[in-house]
């Protein structure tokens, strides 16, 4: 994978022809994905590697020196108080911060060994490989079918679109609820269904990493549990990074947890990584006093 990963734009500058990347999704497994149980495994390959990453907005130092290896097919949770930079760090992975003109990233973030900020890397291509799900479900005001088909269509998908839509909805555990109303507007779905639709939409372009920024914070407890179940199933095929305010959620779903905190200097907040380790360790025997104080609710 390391050698074959291609984050440069598919469009050839000279001919304008589409590239050769095959966007066909992985073959469908029969029925629902098998749940294999989650334990962090150091043998899992590091897929996204943060090394001494600093994020700045202009001269404002938003995040200080983050080093986190994210391993393949694990769920990594980012937790910490508001303003600690966890979302900023998440967004730096699929170059969402590029949309803010003054933002800049120092240090290196690699994806399959490729520097995500190297010259020539196309952010649009990055986002095809690294999908994102946001806090508030944000389906397009289109049909359920079109919500899924939109991304692959733009990406030049040439295969059977009906199959791809079904596959994506199956993987997002939504197919059975929507298969008879694919042409209806996605906005008629419940919040939890909309969020699963957004996950299906993210999956449709066949990424291997999913970023989730507070994916369940706008949902009720039942819909939240469905999203958590889904994450657990998805990690067979995807690497997931989740930002969450809900520590019990991080404890329930993730394999490893990064705890971020925030320092204030002259009124300016700089987030920093305090501790990154296996989730079971963070919640039973954190090594840093700051982590312990935060997760036990002593500060906050």
């Amino acid at each position: 994978m390391t050698d074959s990963i291609d984050l440069v734009s598919d469009t050839d500058a000279e001919t304008g022809k589409s590239g050769t990347r095959d966007p066909t999704p992985t073959p469908r497994v029969s029925g629902r994905p098998r749940v294999t149980g989650g334990t962090p495994n150091d043998a899992n390959k590091v897929i996204i590697d943060f090394k001494d990453v600093d994020v700045y907005y202009g001269d404002f130092h938003a995040v200080d020196s983050v080093t986190v290896p994210v391993r393949e097919k694990e769920i990594t949770a980012f937790i910490g108080p508001s303003g600690c930079g966890k979302s900023t760090v998440l967004r730096s992975i699929n170059r969402m911060n590029d949309l803010i003109e003054s933002a800049r990233v120092e240090g290196t973030i690699t994806y399959h060994g490729v520097d995500l900020y190297a010259p020539g890397v196309d952010p649009v291509e990055v986002r095809r490989h690294i999908g994102m799900v946001f806090q508030k479900p944000n389906p397009f005001p289109k049909s359920i079918y079109e919500n899924i088909a939109f991304g692959p269509k733009i990406a030049g998908f040439k295969g059977n679109m009906d199959d791809l839509v079904e596959e994506s909805l199956l993987r997002a555990a939504l197919w059975n609820e929507v298969k008879d109303r694919l042409t209806e507007t996605a906005l008629a779905l419940s919040g939890g269904q909309q969020q699963r639709l957004c996950i299906a939409r993210a999956i449709a372009t066949s990424p291997d990493v999913l970023l989730m920024d507070e994916p369940a914070s706008a949902l009720d407890p039942i819909a939240t549990l469905r999203i958590e179940d889904l994450m657990y199933e998805l990690k067979q095929d995807y690497t997931i990074i989740i930002v969450t305010h809900n520590m019990q959620q991080a404890a329930r779903v993730s394999d490893r947890t990064a705890f971020f905190s925030v320092d204030v200097n002259e009124g300016r907040r700089t987030g920093r990584l305090v501790e990154f380790t296996e989730t079971a360790k963070i919640f039973t025997s954190p090594q840093q006093r700051e982590t312990e104080d935060y997760i036990t609710g002593r500060f906050g």
Binding site: D263, R289, D293, R298
Partner: peptide, 18 residues
């Protein structure tokens, strides 16, 4: 703890818990 933005005061609920 150093200088952190989250208020370094324990809430009443946490006091009760402690």
């Amino acid at each position: 703890m150093g200088d952190t933005t989250h208020d370094n005061h324990e809430t009443e609920l946490r006091h009760h818990y402690d």
